[in-house]
Design a protein around this nucleic acid. Structure first.
Length: 425
DNA sequence: TCTGGGGTCCTAGGACCC
DNA sequence: TCTGGGGTCCTAGGACCC
């Protein structure tokens, strides 16, 4: 495993060759593979036209109507009434993401999947094997198409930031290489919004002081930047001048380290204040979360819930356990206590979520009795997980008997529950 | 047209320890 | 009696990304 230092002294090295590979309209393209009749049409992935939800991905044909991801589905339906709305299929996307990863690994041992449809490759020193950067990129591009039937765009530069911005400029289905030394002049004419990490809020703040282009940012005084925008603003300005400014975009390309948090949340079709319904959802979400915690062979220390009321005000409340856990019941009981202590009873809820973090590979040493008990429970749950894989989620009836016994156990151990002293809002 | 779900990273204050 | 910092953990919230 690579060590991540946060700062990489090689970042400004002109010999460094970083690829950013981004799949084009990934979700839509995968859906087209499963249903070729969708090809070339206005397609919206994310749900049905009258559902509560937003667009996950839109085909290029749909984008022409102004449809874009994160837009409410109902808005998309208004803008583009003839669009075909399809549900997303996360399993398919994971499958094709895996295929793409296999392709990338043939070009460099240093591949970092940055999300389901994009990756960084460290291609430094691969010239003898794959030729110069552009040649390697074209070979990769073709191989990706032949192996997965999917198009991608590739950005090449001396840092992750440059590679990432390049792949965006190369879209769709293109390759763009910024040769060493040209970084600052490449970035200068671009809108600050093109810099990953600069969103609506930061763009607005910059616009307020007359900064629209990356080049404008490069001219600002360091002390002013730091005072006004903190460390990140300073780093950003450094990058706009082609410097190694540290942080995420100058990190090494690292192999996958596993998740840092796992969560599930649910938005109700209609808002509710039915406590039974809400707590049943907490139990279900806790099971889904813990199942994935077990799949990764992790143990979580912090349990967090999220409540979103009808007026969209959102709170999160967390509690750290004495001992990391992967047990449904421990997470569910903790989440339920957090819920009962913090829900303003009577206020209708739109969304509820369960989130865990603070992972350990190995649970901390417990006293022998608890440990053997928890081991047994974990093993039993793994069996349940496998049965569900084989026979479907309705094999859960097996878990019900186990659960009532877990509950006794949790009650014996009230120290693992959140304190009651939590202040109410 | 009301605004998903899964994440990462950062900030900031308070507790607590040295 | 008052006054220090630094470091780390915990919690809450928010920006941002796909």
């Amino acid at each position: 495993m690579e060590e991540i230092t946060g700062r990489n002294s090689a970042a400004a090295d002109p010999r460094r060759v970083i690829f950013h590979v981004d799949m084009d309209a990934f979700f839509v393209s995968v859906e087209e593979l499963f249903d070729p009749s969708l090809k070339g049409k206005a397609v919206v992935v994310g749900g049905h036209r009258d559902e509560r939800g937003v667009v996950s991905a839109a085909s290029y044909a749909a984008r022409k109507f102004g449809v874009h991801s994160a837009m409410p589905l109902r808005t998309a339906a208004k803008l583009c009434p003839d669009a075909i709305f399809v549900n997303g299929h996360p399993e398919r996307y994971r499958e094709y993401s895996g295929k793409a990863f296999e392709v990338l690994k043939k070009f460099s041992p240093k591949v970092e999947m940055a999300s389901i449809d994009e990756a960084y490759l460290d291609m430094t020193g691969t010239e003898r094997l794959h030729g110069p950067p552009l040649k390697a990129a074209h070979a990769l591009h073709q191989f990706m198409k032949s192996e997965t039937k999917l198009n991608c765009s590739i950005g090449i530069g001396t840092s992750r930031l440059i590679a990432k911005v390049c792949s965006d400029q190369a879209k769709p289905n293109g390759v763009l290489y910024i040769v060493p030394g040209q970084e600052a002049s490449f970035l200068a004419p671009l809108s600050v919004r093109k810099i990953p990490g600069v969103g609506k809020v930061f763009e607005q703040k910059l616009n307020e002081i007359g900064i629209k282009k990356v080049g404008d940012l490069a001219k600002l005084d360091d002390a002013f930047l730091r005072e006004r925008f903190g460390e990140w603003g300073l780093a950003l300005a450094g990058k706009s001048r082609g410097l190694d400014a540290g942080g995420y975009f100058d990190r090494d390309v690292a192999v996958d380290e596993g998740p840092k948090s796992i969560s599930h949340e649910h938005t109700f079709n209609t808002d509710t204040r039915d406590q039974e319904k809400l707590e049943a959802m907490i139990a279900r979400l806790s099971e889904m979360v813990c199942r994935r915690v077990r799949e990764h062979e992790l143990h979580a220390r912090t349990v967090q819930i999220k409540l979103r009321y009808s007026d969209f005000t959102t709170i999160t409340r967390a509690h750290s356990l004495e001992q990391p856990t992967q047990l449904d019941t421990v997470v569910a009981e903790t989440a339920r206590t957090l819920f009962r202590d913090n829900w303003q009873r009577g206020r209708t809820i739109r969304l509820i979520g369960v989130h865990v973090a603070g992972f350990d590979d190995v649970p901390q040493q417990l006293d022998l009795l608890t440990q053997t008990h928890d081991d047994k429970v974990s093993k039993a749950l793994s069996v349940v997980d496998r049965m569900r894989d084989k026979f479907g989620e309705n094999a859960v009836s097996l878990a019900t008997g186990l659960k009532s016994r877990f509950r006794e156990k949790t009650h014996e151990n009230p120290a693992s529950l959140p304190g009651k002293s939590k202040k109410k809002e």
